[in-house]
Nucleic acid binder design. Structure first.
Lengths: 130, 130
DNA sequence: TTAGGTGTATTAATTCGACTAGTACACTTG
DNA sequence: CAAGTGTACTAGTCGAATTAATACACCTAA
């Protein structure tokens, strides 16, 4: 169920989080289902159980899974909603926007604008002009 | 025009960015105006010119100022718009949302919801009785 | 009860990127 | 050309993030 990409540069525990999220979002794992045990994953991937535990803690904090003592991690109802995955980021953005004195409308406008703009990758325009 | 708060924990170059942004947002510095030279600020604050340069590079990347070779950094027209300050964050959020398969409408809905929710600090709803 | 399963608190080692500075350079202006 | 502008390169430092080792608390099922 899980696999690692060592050359990706993405931390192990985040890879696990991503794959679990995807498995849930795609319906391959449904609410009520159990995720593999910490030790099962740790053994399969050859990593420390704590690393897997950290991934699970992250998922739990996000409300994707719930810990059932003695049983394991179970996918929650709310966790199945992909939209919940962006709540943390959305909240951060809203906070910054409010801090800048933007109105709700202005923020939404900005979001829409960004949505339209395709891959113009305006993140790395370094390059000295001239 | 600039001052440092060593105990704030905020990196020097970010403090400069913040103060410059505020000076512009408040109208104390208008589009077309020149910002103090790298060396002037560096001397006044007792820091390395490169540190100030990094602040200016950040502002330039954000489109707040434009470099005029041989002259210095000049406040741009678009830079005066506070909304531009959130573009980077907005783009990041949009990218994640798209990756999760959300529609534009769903994302905006989520934003609106976050906007309403006041300081209920919903970041730690853990705890499961069971 | 207890053997075997679950996740995790604590601690420590390590890695890695952010931050700052020293120096030298390219460039424009007057 | 002299004096001003910002910056590329390089290097050092520091702290947070990541991973692991170990021991523990808890629950389930026989």
């Amino acid at each position: 169920m899980f696999s690692l990409n060592p050359s990706s540069g993405i931390p192990i525990y985040r890879q696990i989080v991503q794959q679990a999220r995807f498995a849930i979002a795609s319906g391959r794992v449904k609410p009520g289902d159990r995720l593999p045990s910490v030790r099962a994953i740790a053994t399969q991937l050859g990593v420390n159980p704590m690393t897997v535990s950290k991934a699970y803690s992250t998922l739990q904090q996000a409300g994707v899974v719930v810990r059932h003592p003695g049983i394991g991690m179970v996918v929650s109802e709310a966790g199945a909603d992909p939209a919940s995955a962006i709540d943390a980021d959305a909240q951060a953005l809203v906070q910054v926007a409010k801090q800048l004195g933007l109105s709700r409308k202005e923020l939404v406008e900005r979001i829409n604008k960004q949505w339209e703009e395709e891959w113009t990758d305006q993140t790395i325009p370094l390059r000295r002009s001239r």
